[in-house]
């Protein structure tokens, strides 16, 4: 049996991570968590999670960024919002999960064998290109990128959909895609401006002061 040390040192934390998450609109209530476990108790997927939703809240709050972003939990969240409506502290847990998914994708540290982040990215790309989503094409792309064998196993479902007229052979797209393009560019630019602003904040000045 392999023994592992589970102690955490201060260096294992990414200080400020919890505060960063908390500063995102919708995630503000995180700090008031009392670790009651209602979220895990109502979550239909918690039985498959490596950390329960409650545990994730504690990890985020204590700045254990790597543990959280590597966890299966955030990808198992199906966004049913049950935890959010039952939380006695009105913490919007689903929105926090979204925020963590975004960070995991940005930093590229999600579990490799998980297809969900790939689906999310392909979904995003498809909307970027066409403005709409054609589900069967999206699913096929996702399987080809992750697990082509799985795609083969899905033949029965695909054929069934085709026979029932639920498998469009033409991609759905919008007419004025340039409009979307311009709107997204505005968002991107604002994100970059925001980053510049953040760099001016005293937090970084303090870090620089140590040097």
């Amino acid at each position: 049996m392999k023994l592992t040390r589970t102690i955490k040192y201060e260096a294992d934390r990414v200080k400020g991570f919890g505060d960063e998450v908390r500063s995102v609109p919708g995630c503000e209530q995180l700090q008031s968590c009392i670790q009651c476990g209602t979220c895990s108790g109502v979550c239909p997927l918690s039985i498959y999670m490596d950390y329960s939703p409650r545990h994730v809240m504690a990890l985020v709050r204590s700045d254990f960024k790597n543990e959280v972003l590597k966890s299966h939990t955030i990808w198992l969240c199906a966004s049913c919002y049950h935890c959010t409506v039952e939380c006695p502290r009105q913490i919007r847990i689903t929105d926090i999960m979204y925020e963590l998914k975004q960070r995991a994708i940005q930093e590229g540290i999600y579990p490799r064998h998980f297809t969900i982040p790939v689906l999310a990215k392909e979904f995003y790309k498809m909307v970027y290109r066409y403005g709409r989503v054609t589900e069967n094409v999206l699913a096929a792309t996702m399987f080809l990128k992750t697990n082509p064998m799985e795609a083969v196993k899905m033949w029965r479902l695909g054929l069934g959909l085709l026979l029932r007229g639920r498998f469009p052979l033409v991609l759905e797209k919008i007419k004025r895609r340039d409009e979307l393009d311009r709107m997204m560019k505005v968002v991107d630019k604002m994100h970059i401006d925001q980053l510049h602003d953040d760099q001016k904040k005293p937090r970084h000045a303090v870090a620089g002061g140590h040097a």
Binding site: C36, G37, T38, S40, G41, V42, R54
Partner: peptide, 29 residues
């Protein structure tokens, strides 16, 4: 230690002990 998520009357199929009972779903934190 855990705040109960729900009390329900539906039983998981394989769980004989749940039949006809009130089932509490909770995280044992």
């Amino acid at each position: 230690r855990g705040r109960v998520g729900e009390v329900t009357d539906w039983a998981m199929s394989k769980e004989e002990m749940e039949k006809g009972k009130l089932v509490i779903r909770v995280e044992d934190t």
